[in-house]
Amino acid sequence: MILLKDVYLSLDGPTGQVDILKGINLEINIGETVSVVGPSGSGKTSMMMIIAGLERATSGHVEINGRVLTDLSEDALSLFRRDTLGIIFQNFHLVPTMSALENVAIPAEFCGADDAFDRAKKNLELVGLGHRIKHYPSQLSGGEQQRVALARAFCGRPKVLLADEPTGNLDQETGRKIIDLLFALSTENKTTLMLITHDPSIAEKSTRIISLEDGKIIGSPTL
């Protein structure tokens, strides 16, 4: 479960302090799929970073699957991410010097799983890239890279998956396939999914849409 209570985030910018999140209250249940929408600069990404433990809230309570993130050290946050989270980026962020298989195996390797590469191979087959396991990111198309990222995100068997505009760099058709895959895998693995998107058709696929504006949640209609 994701629980945010009165979360504020202020950052120091060149022109002074900038208030990014202004009292976020949010509760997402296990297995729920949630889309976050809102204009640029509304605080969507910052909220996701706080949930991922990559940014510390200035104040408020952040609790993911029973772990209060505000109390954790940097290394404990890393372990938390390793054991709990999967993340998908708009720009894929695969390690360019590692093959598709090695990229996917990273989370499982971090967990010390002996079957890291078997799991990675299986996940790549699941996303339809069983024939590309030895390819490097530069040898893959954008859609394929995002599928590798998807396979990687699920390799550590995450309880929560965060996706930041995962189709932002893909054409509509490829993007649709990726989203279908993302939702299918989330459902299959009973993973809580939080997805940032600007595309209303993608947002509509989730069980709930959260709208952010100027650092505040302005609506959370349940579909």
Partner: peptide, 8 residues
């Protein structure tokens, strides 16, 4: 990326 994937 590695940090996001849980690398300390």
């Amino acid at each position: 990326t590695l940090k996001c994937l849980g690398a300390p």
